[in-house]
Simulated scan of single mutants.
Amino acid sequence: MLDLDETLVHASLEFMEQSHLQFDVTFKEQDYHVWVKIRPHCLEFLERLAEKFEIIVFTASQSIYADKLLNLIDPDSRLIKHRVFRNSCLFVNENYVKDLTVLNRDLSKIAIVDNSPQAFGYQVLSNGIPIKSWFGDTSDRQEVCLLKLLPFIESLAAADDVRPHIVNRFKLHERVSAL
């Protein structure tokens, strides 16, 4: 599973130079124009993952916005097989938390890449792969972030249970305990 905003893309209601996509969306009877930058190597990342995995985008964004954006990124749903939105999140302490159990899938086979560990930390910290937030920066340091994760994620395809591998690599439980 992949998060959308600040993981795969950066979107804004304000003009962004060199945006890759633009679209209009109506939300609560208000019209908005959205500018979107796609994270470097995003499409390559999605294509490689789609070879080995069922890709699900799980976003805390509203479906009216996220569906339009995902239709532009993957118009034929060739890469992203399922979409899960804010209405499937739990609202806990002013945060939208992604409840992976809504997918009705074996949690030993699920990994979620998200820039916001609190979004997946409520119940499934062992399934979470953290990534640095991306806000449209094109520096080399950020560009390789998705590509750096690929070998590890691809290695999970052979795992009987992804959770021990994720826990060992990212040690999120230790980080949370230290807070």
Score class of each variant (00 low, 15 high):
127 N>D: 02
126 S>F: 05
176 V>W: 12
1 M>C: 13
164 P>Y: 09
115 N>M: 02
133 S>H: 06
166 I>D: 07
100 L>G: 05
10 H>D: 00
173 H>Y: 09
90 L>A: 11
38 I>T: 14
7 T>C: 15
81 K>L: 02
95 N>M: 10
28 K>M: 10
77 S>E: 12
69 L>C: 05
21 L>Y: 12
158 A>P: 01
110 I>Y: 04
103 L>E: 11
115 N>V: 03
156 L>D: 09
31 D>K: 14
100 L>I: 03
169 R>G: 03
5 D>V: 02
44 E>N: 07
76 D>F: 00
54 E>H: 06
134 W>Y: 15
18 Q>H: 15
4 L>P: 00
156 L>Y: 08
53 F>I: 08
172 L>Q: 14
91 F>G: 02
150 L>Q: 03
173 H>A: 13
179 L>N: 09
89 C>W: 09
10 H>G: 00
91 F>S: 05
9 V>A: 10
80 I>E: 07
65 Y>E: 01
22 Q>P: 00
105 R>W: 04
84 V>L: 05
154 E>L: 15
104 N>H: 15
18 Q>M: 13
151 P>Q: 06
85 F>D: 02
154 E>W: 00
117 P>T: 12
66 A>V: 03
26 T>C: 09
8 L>H: 01
131 I>P: 04
116 S>Q: 12
58 F>R: 03
106 D>R: 10
93 N>C: 11
7 T>W: 10
71 N>I: 02
46 L>S: 06
161 D>P: 03
132 K>E: 12
179 L>A: 07
64 I>A: 13
118 Q>E: 06
59 T>L: 05
47 E>V: 08
152 F>E: 05
133 S>L: 02
133 S>C: 05
84 V>G: 06
107 L>T: 10
26 T>P: 01
133 S>E: 09
95 N>R: 13
93 N>S: 13
151 P>W: 08
11 A>D: 01
101 T>K: 14
116 S>G: 11
4 L>H: 02
170 F>Q: 02
27 F>A: 11
87 N>I: 02
30 Q>K: 14
82 H>G: 00
95 N>E: 10
94 E>L: 10
103 L>N: 12
69 L>Q: 04
123 Q>W: 07
18 Q>E: 15
136 G>E: 08
79 L>V: 00
91 F>I: 05
24 D>N: 15
36 V>N: 08
144 V>K: 14
58 F>S: 01
119 A>Y: 07
111 A>C: 07
